[in-house]
Every structure is written in C-alpha cells, then in structure tokens.
C-alpha cells in the first residue's frame, strides 16, 4: 500500500465528512449572507475588486479563524477519533496528519472560497470598467488581485486550521478541547495584535520592529499581506508589513502546528504538556461555566 493511496483515502474521508455535514453548508450560506450585508453597507461591490477586498478584510479576519476552528478542533476528537484503530493499519503518522489536514483544508476552501468566488463573479458584473480588465500592471483594479486575495484568505485559513488541529490533538477531552479551540480563536483574532500593541506602548517593540512583530501574528500577517500585495498593488500604497517576515510568520505557525500534530498523534510524546494544557483548559472551561 503506497503512502500516496493512504494519504488519498484519508483526505477523501475528510472531504466527504465536510460535504455530508449540513452545518458546514449552513456556514457557507451564512458567510455569503455576511459578505452581502458587509458589501451593501460598504459599497465595495460597485467600486471593484480591491474595494470589495478592503470591505471584506475585517470580517474575514474573524470569520476565517471561526471556520478553521470549527473544522479543526474535532478533527481528532469525539466520533472522529479512530486513531487507535488507524494506527494498526499501515498508515504513517505523517500520511494521517497530511490527509486529515488536506481534506479539511479542501472543506475550508469550499466553505470560505465558494461565497468569496460568488462575490467575485458579482463584482465582474456590477463593478466598474476596470473590473473587467485583467491588469498586468500595478495601479489598476483587476480580478487577478481578487484571486490573490482569495488565495491569501485560504492560506490564512490553512494556518489557523493547523493550529486548531494541534489543539485537538494536544487536548482530547471534549470540553477541554472546546476551551482550547476557543483559546486558539481568541489568540488568533486578538492575541497577536494586543501583544504587539502592548509591546509598542511599553517600548518593548520599537517602530522599526513593529512590522516584524506583527508578522508573528497570523491575522496581522494576513492583513498585512492583503494590504501589501492586493490593495497596495492597485493603490500604489504599500509598506503595510514586511512581506517576507509575514510569509515566514504564517509558514512558521503552519509547520509548527502540523509538527505538533505529527509528534502527538500517537499519544506518546508531550503527555505531560498535554495533561497540563488539558487541566488549564478545563479550568478555563469551568471559569466560563461560572
């Protein structure tokens, strides 16, 4: 049995799971409704692809992590957890983790990408003259920029999905896993920005280091990359973030999270850390219950 076939079988099961789960379909419809509402309020649709991307950027910073956590936090928990059985098959840890990650990422791309693609189609119909041109030069609105925006959004989702999967593996108990997933969500949505702000106000992070510090936060890196490579290209106003640092930041979170999943998948290493995180998460959950 080749690794490729095992990987394909595992990934296909994850895609099928996402497709068969009605709540994920509802999530797609909900996202489309939020996008439509945001764009009607902001007027981005008529402005073209880049104004649309700008209007959607802030909601996506919250919604993409939400979808990623919803998909990732039970990837290895509850009825989805058949690791003890799977590990009796010739399934390597890497194939299992890669298959689950890719399958769920395809699901995420569908849930987030489908409504975004629908928005892109609408922009091509109702947007200005420039929106119908495939620009090859900067300073012009173009579908290419919207595709880039969509790709960056999926990449951001991939990073948070990997982080949520790591939480799912490190903390397996149901309520503790939920608390850990919420911690990932809050950390991604607000944690990085707050830390950078604290660093700036206390003087720990100087102006010159701010771009690099923000790059270490997934959502700040995503925001910066969108502003730099989508909005900045069309408006000629860039320098929102250090691009290479932002790419390295996202890649670092992705690889570290997937590495943590691979190391912990057979419940052997990190047992002490896992029980510690589990205990902490359970206490957080208890505190939230009170």
């Amino acid at each position: 049995m080749s690794r490729g076939r095992v990987f394909g079988a595992v990934a296909w099961r994850e895609v099928s799971t996402v497709v068969r789960t009605r709540s994920y379909l509802l999530l797609t419809v909900g996202l489309l409704a939020v996008f439509v509402g945001t764009l009607r309020a902001g007027g981005g649709l008529e402005g073209g692809y880049v104004p649309t991307a700008v209007d959607l950027l802030l909601p996506l910073e919250l919604l993409v992590p939400l979808v990623a956590v919803a998909l990732g936090y039970r990837a290895f928990g509850g009825d989805n957890d058949d690791r003890p059985v799977l590990l009796t098959y010739p399934v390597s840890k890497r194939s299992l983790v890669a298959g689950v990650f890719l399958g769920r990422l395809v699901g995420l791309a569908g849930i987030v990408g489908a409504p975004l693609a629908a928005v892109g189609v609408v922009v091509s119909r109702v947007g200005g003259h420039e929106s119908r041109v495939f620009a090859t030069h900067g300073g012009v609105d173009s579908p290419v920029l919207f595709v880039r925006f969509l790709a960056l959004t999926i990449c951001f989702g991939a990073v948070v999905l990997a982080m949520a999967m790591a939480a799912s593996v490190l903390v397996r108990a149901g309520r503790a896993a939920l608390a850990a997933a919420l911690a990932v969500l809050v950390g991604v949505v607000a944690g990085g920005d707050l830390l950078a702000l604290v660093g700036l106000t206390t003087g720990a992070v100087g102006d010159s280091l701010l771009g690099t510090a923000l790059a270490a936060s997934p959502n700040a890196a995503y925001r910066g990359l969108v502003l730099e490579t989508v909005v900045g290209v069309a408006t000629d106003r860039g320098a929102a973030i250090d691009v290479s640092a932002a790419v390295a930041g996202l890649a670092g979170w992705l690889l570290a999270s997937l590495g943590a999943v691979v190391v912990s998948i057979d419940r052997r290493p990190l047992a002490g850390l896992r029980s510690g995180v589990g205990e902490l998460s359970a206490r957080v959950a208890d505190a939230l219950d009170r």
Binding site: M1, A9, S16, T21, V85, T88, Y89, P90
Partner: peptide
Amino acid sequence: DRPIGYLPQEPTFRPGFTAAETMAFYSSL
C-alpha cells in the same frame, strides 16, 4: 501489512458514513 487487528472497548466510527462505506475506507488502507 497489518500484523494486529484491534477492536477497542468503545469503538468509534465516522458519523455520516454507512457500515459498508466505513469498511470500504479501512479496507482501502
């Protein structure tokens, strides 16, 4: 390829799949 087959005390199966699909998945491995 598979030295040990295992039935856990509380077996879990992926919801949304039929018994035949579940078996077909494991068999495909």
